[in-house]
């Protein structure tokens, strides 16, 4: 028996919006730790890892570990039927082949439930070891989103370099080239407006902009994004989900021929 009650239902709506264009079908894993997912895009260039910890739910019952395969576009369609202020409850029976999403409005005078068939999906779980990154940059998520969008009007790929000077995003295309540098800036009114650069070693890597643009669909989940870079590893863009966990996007770099 699985029963998860999330008072801030809008979080789940935002999480699905952030993932549904990147990943088509995915297994949601439910355990005592929380509600999680790891999935790749169809070309295996990007990976998304989601964790919503059990403590973040008002009620969390998961008698045994359950894996539930779902089409994210269909889940997103169902969650669009929930109001932004609704409480969302996810229910499933052990060994069942359906999941139920229940929505309650704040006045508690409208209750909807939607039952969806589960899918049997091959699991493609990758082991992601903890790593020391060459550079970790925390910046406002809206700023990162703006940079990715602006640069994709000029080029298809971006070179992200971190040096003592700051984090530099560079692209080139038919009409010319562009460079955007963000320097460390901690003299801000609110901590979430800061750009904080931790650098152990200078690093420079090339990435496809369309994936980064897809990651920025998570912008509404967090005011800041943390970008981790290492020369031998995929980039990680992490959006923390307040009091609950995170959504992390991994992107494999372009490799020099």
């Amino acid at each position: 028996m699985l029963e998860l009650r999330l008072v801030q239902g809008s979080l789940l709506k935002k999480v699905l919006e952030a993932m549904k264009d990147l990943v088509t079908d995915a297994n949601f894993d439910c355990s005592a730790t929380g509600f999680s997912l790891q999935a790749m895009d169809s070309s295996h260039v990007a990976l998304v890892a989601l964790l919503l910890r059990s403590e973040g739910f008002e009620h969390y019952r998961c008698d045994r570990n359950i894996t539930m395969g779902m089409n994210l576009n269909n889940v997103s369609k169902l969650l669009k039927c929930a109001g932004n202020d609704d409480i969302i409850t996810i229910k499933a029976d052990d060994g069942g082949d359906t999941v139920t999403f229940m929505f309650e409005n704040p006045k508690q005078d409208k209750i909807s439930d939607f039952e969806m068939k589960l899918m049997d999906l091959d699991s493609e779980h990758l082991g992601i070891p903890d790593a020391e990154y060459h550079a970790i940059v925390r910046m406002p998520s809206l700023e990162f989103s703006r940079i990715c969008k602006d640069l994709s009007s000029i080029g298809d790929t971006v070179v992200i370099s971190v040096t003592k000077e700051g984090i530099k995003f560079s692209t080139r295309g038919d009409i010319g080239n562009a460079n955007i540098v963000c320097r460390q800036n901690t003299t801000v009114d609110k901590p979430e407006e800061a750009t904080v650069i931790q650098m152990n070693e200078a690093v420079s890597l090339t990435f496809a902009l369309r994936y980064l643009n897809s990651f920025t669909k998570a912008t509404s989940l967090s005011e800041t994004v943390t970008i981790s870079l290492s020369s031998e590893l995929p980039l990680v863009a992490e959006y923390k989900i307040a009091d609950m966990g995170y959504i992390k996007f991994y992107l494999a770099p372009k490799i020099e021929d």
């Binding site: 790749m40 295996h44 260039v45 990007a46 990976l47 493609e124 990758l126 496809a208 494999a252």
Partner: peptide
């Protein structure tokens, strides 16, 4: 421009 890397080149299946 270089070729696009894939996740499996960096992380192994478990």
């Amino acid at each position: 421009k270089g070729s696009q890397g894939r996740m499996e080149s960096f992380f192994k299946p478990v």
